[in-house]
């Protein structure tokens, strides 16, 4: 319990720092008044605007107001779209989250078994072939994988759509593509594209960890105890392998989420990545600032989840009350 509280404390601190950076960006990059009323407004108009926005108040007060509004989900109005930023993000968030989750499920679901298998069958030609393939997966740029997949499965075979999200269903404001056939089909290529690099990374890490654990003293002692091979490999070695792998999976999930921009561009996926590309092009500062807070929030939640999972797997962490510190 103390463990959880100290973790929560750290999470809140991280969010606070992110909020401050985001506030600084919002307040000091460019002139908010200029951005809103345009060059043509009169000096008096500008002054009225400054007053209305509270831009002459002390910085600390302004930051307090920023945080207070952010907590209520109010991040201001997008310069580019003229809509509330929160509403824009909320529309796009489910698309990116679903894409990221499915990509990580593919990467983890295949990566861990493949890594473990190649470690246990070191020397077999299939394991060698898988390793070589995984090297290619690491080296290939993501957009190239996406384009090749589109070429094969959309253009040549015509099996899967090459862009968009398909039909989506809205459940309490959350739009999901997982409940319609076209939605699922549309998700396949982008999630594979996004997952390939993670898959190879997780596979290679799981393999390396498994090899390391299989050489460790307690595995040698387990063999000396005459335990069966399956028990040693899956009961002891695999569990110990999962400890570091869980950490990486968590951190990579954050990365996948934050850097889905390339895949969203290739597949015209209506998620946060596409939105942010536009925001950057138009220097849409409120949108960027809010996006920053959102990403920080996601990382913080993921880290917290990883820590809890970590403590659940490893009694040493539970006892120490402190896990590895999040990156």
């Amino acid at each position: 319990m103390g463990f959880l509280i100290s973790r929560l404390g750290q999470t809140i601190l991280v969010l606070f720092v992110a909020a401050f950076v985001s506030f600084a960006l919002f307040r000091y990059v460019g002139d908010p008044v200029n951005n809103m009323v345009g060059q043509a407004a009169s000096l008096a108009d500008r002054e009225a605007m400054r007053q209305a926005l509270g831009l002459d108040d002390p910085t600390l007060l302004q930051f307090g107001r920023f945080v207070g509004q952010a907590v209520q989900g109010d991040f201001g109005i997008s310069y580019r779209f003229g809509q509330p930023v929160a509403q824009l993000l909320a529309e796009r968030f489910p698309a990116t989250l679903e894409l990221s989750i499915v990509a990580m499920i593919i990467a983890t679901g295949l990566g861990i078994p493949l890594g473990v298998w190649t470690a246990l069958h070191r020397g077999s030609w299939i394991a060698q072939a898988l390793l070589t393939l995984s090297l290619i997966g690491v080296a290939l740029p993501t957009f190239l994988i996406g384009i090749v997949l589109i070429l094969v499965f959309s253009v040549w075979l015509g099996w899967l759509p090459s862009f968009g999200r398909g039909e989506v269903v809205s459940i309490g404001g959350w739009t999901t593509g997982l409940l319609t056939w076209t939605g699922i089909k549309a998700l396949i290529l982008p999630s594979i594209t996004l997952g390939v690099f993670q898959l190879t990374l997780i596979m290679r890490l799981a393999r390396a960890e498994m090899l390391e654990i299989m050489r460790s003293d307690f595995i040698r002692f387990a063999k000396a105890r005459g335990l069966r091979r399956r028990t040693i490999e899956y009961g002891h070695a695999l569990r110990n392998t999962l400890v570091p792998v869980v950490t990486i999976v968590g951190l990579q999930f954050g990365n996948v989420f934050a850097f889905s921009i390339i895949v969203e561009t290739v597949f015209q996926w209506p998620g946060l990545g596409l939105l942010i590309i536009q925001a950057i092009q138009f220097a849409d500062v409120p949108l960027l600032a809010a996006y920053l807070v959102l990403i920080a929030f996601c990382f913080a939640v993921i880290n917290l989840a990883v820590d809890v999972l970590y403590a659940w797997i490893d009694p040493r962490v539970r006892a120490a009350g402190m896990g590895r510190s999040a990156a």
Binding site: S216, F218, R225, G226, R228
Partner: peptide, 23 residues
Amino acid sequence: RALRGREIAAVFQDPLTSLDPLM
């Protein structure tokens, strides 16, 4: 394997690392 641990057992040098830390 069936003999090991049953008829011939072992004790190794380092007790800190001989046991599975997760069990």
